[in-house]
Design a protein around this nucleic acid. Structure first.
Lengths: 123, 123, 123, 123
DNA sequence: GTGGTCTAGACCACC
DNA sequence: GTGGTCTAGACCACA
């Protein structure tokens, strides 16, 4: 896994997103145990406090839970994971459409443009 | 014009975007004179310095220029305005697609999802 | 004559420099009569007040003088004109050398670099 | 370091130039950490905001970058630093030659005059 | 402690 | 009245 960050946004946010991706994509399957904070932190070359914060946020969202003695685990609730993915995705789409409107494109315009860009990318 | 801001991002950035929208959408036509910094600032209820900063950034992008003592004007270059709109739009699309991939959706998935959301919105 | 200005410096300064050039280069010969402020201003598309100020500064430097009733004239003192040219030139050279030192180039470095640039330009 | 300013040009511009000199000359080596905004500001006896602005401009040029919470650093790209020095130098030379032409000196004249002034200075 | 943002208020040159 | 600069002082998120 390539951990890399930009300076524009908080590190912990970017950590959160990347770990969330690992879970949502199934690389960290439902119910599996996460590496320790220390290990995750050293792997990502960040301060353990920062990693801690990212995990705490993920815990708040319900995607992971911590077992006092034995560490942190991905939720066993596969449905939750799927819902999470879908709701975040929808959120991103709405934000995107809103920003495009902000630029003067209607939702219909945006659809067409996205299709066009995707086609270009494929070529 | 309804000037409103969220607390997540710098105000000057949001000012910039909103003014840019006014230009791109043609509400401030090419070559037209902008209100003075002070007027814009008071209209948006921000400090003149904050507005100044937003305008300075817009100036750097070439969308507006300032005439030492007579005020600020929208660029006369209509083509530039159009290009700006398109390039910002494309940028937003690419960012969006990237974030969706980050969530586990392929570009093709994203297209379908956007279409679906737009349809829902219309209903 | 092509009158054109940039926004970085005061208009009257740029007017001054351009008129000074006309005198120093002999296009406005020693002793000759200058066009009226109004004519000069309209030709340069600037406010007469601005042109007035430029001429006043030139007058202060001794390059021109005004005859209450009959208008403004270039000084008859050809030597003064020549001296002016040389002293301004020397001033510019010293400023230039100082700026280059500011960049980490010695005076000797600067000489070599200027020669190199001039050669390139010629080619 | 002797921080001193003239009143003709914005302080932030002069700060920028002086810090740029420190970098270009190697006094602040590639990759090294700069003092904090506050420290630099107090050292130069200017308002932190003014120093901030100078640094922000330097950042835009690529000579330095900021690490959200750990400070600002000189770019690690030594080549960029060298290129910057050369391109700024060339720019200054072209401006100089242009100004001299404006005075009625050809490029060849200018070369000779610069040499003469430098010789005088040495004596 | 670090960079970053914002406000309030002042001053300046220019036209 | 216009843009531009500067100061002083405050607050914030982040690490």
């Amino acid at each position: 896994m390539a951990w890399q960050f930009d300076n524009e946004r908080p590190i912990y946010t970017q950590l959160l997103e990347q770990i969330r991706f690992l879970i949502i994509s199934g690389l960290y399957p439902a119910g599996s145990k996460l590496p320790s904070v220390r290990d995750l932190a050293s792997e990502a070359s960040v301060n353990p406090n920062t990693m801690q914060r990212a995990l705490a946020e993920l815990e708040r969202s319900g995607l992971i839970y911590s077992q006092r003695t034995s560490g942190r685990f991905v939720t066993e609730d596969g449905v939750l994971i799927k819902q999470m993915k879908e709701s975040i995705g929808k959120e991103k789409i709405l934000t995107f459409l809103h920003e495009m409107e902000q630029l003067g494109y209607t939702a219909a315009d945006s659809v067409v443009l996205v299709e066009k860009v995707v086609e270009e990318e494929i070529r």
